[in-house]
Amino acid sequence: MPFDYRRAPDPESAVAAATGWSGVAFLAGGTNLVDHLKLGLVAPDVLVDISRLPLDAVDELPDGGLRVGATVRNTDLAAHPVVRRDYPVLARAVLSGASGQIRNLATTGGNLLQRTRCVYFQDITTPCNKREPGTGCSAIGGYTRHHAILGASAHCVATHPSDMAVAMAALDAQVAVLGEGGRRVVPLVELHRLPGDEPHRDTVLSPADLITWVDLPPLPPGTRSLYRKVRDRASFAFALVSVAAVLRVERGVVRDVRIALGGVAHKPWRARRAEDVLRGERTGEEVFRRAIDAELAGAAPLAGNGFKVPLTRNLVVSALRELSRGER
């Protein structure tokens, strides 16, 4: 279906242009949205182009943190010297996603709002509660290699595909949103939803809500971070399981730990139970295992993805081992 195209000169007019429409979408890099237009997953009445908004800068904040504009290209985020030096988990996560010629187009906001790559969601000939509420879930009882083991529901077992968002979840990033009611801040870990009985709602945002930037709090000196991703091929593939881990150890004791998992749930999954086990403990293989086992106690693998449970366990243990190596 044809659609109206409008280019917004500033964030306020972008929100105004999107207000009052149900079939509206913001267009930035387009690498997910345009694919969805072709696949027939969405048929908006109007596209509001936000790609030229002045939100394309990475700025250092007075508190030592970093503000990443919503239209900063993935390439520029990963190449930014401060991101490479202070937030390696984020640089690595971004670089492990998509391909070079996609990262040159794809934006920060778009990366957060990209939709699941569940094969049934992307195939309009099959029932899908996320695409067409009430039609059923084709993945349950179907092909589930890439699907959730944590936090899924009887209505949807899709996973969120982003790498970047997993790193941002571990960094306690804060998402700035401009909407009809003005500005507000949503913690990144609360931006995406679990499917429940409304799997068509990926996030807590309304259609006219515009992400304007993402703030990364500073990391105390001595903090280490990394991103590990396991996938079916060496490059240009979505995660089967990934882990973003942030760790600060003092005299052999865990002072700060933040673990987020990708490829296992409908949203970037903060492993709070594992973190609770680790905080204040002396580092070591045994406590690493106990921590991730506490998290995975709630795992509910499907017929095709039982391997994700031991894979997640091994991945998290190896990430913690690497981050604590040489710490005394």
Partner: peptide, 12 residues
């Protein structure tokens, strides 16, 4: 910069 063109809209 290198970019794919199949997922870019010409008007944009």
């Amino acid at each position: 910069r290198r970019a794919i063109t199949c997922l870019a809209l010409a008007v944009a």
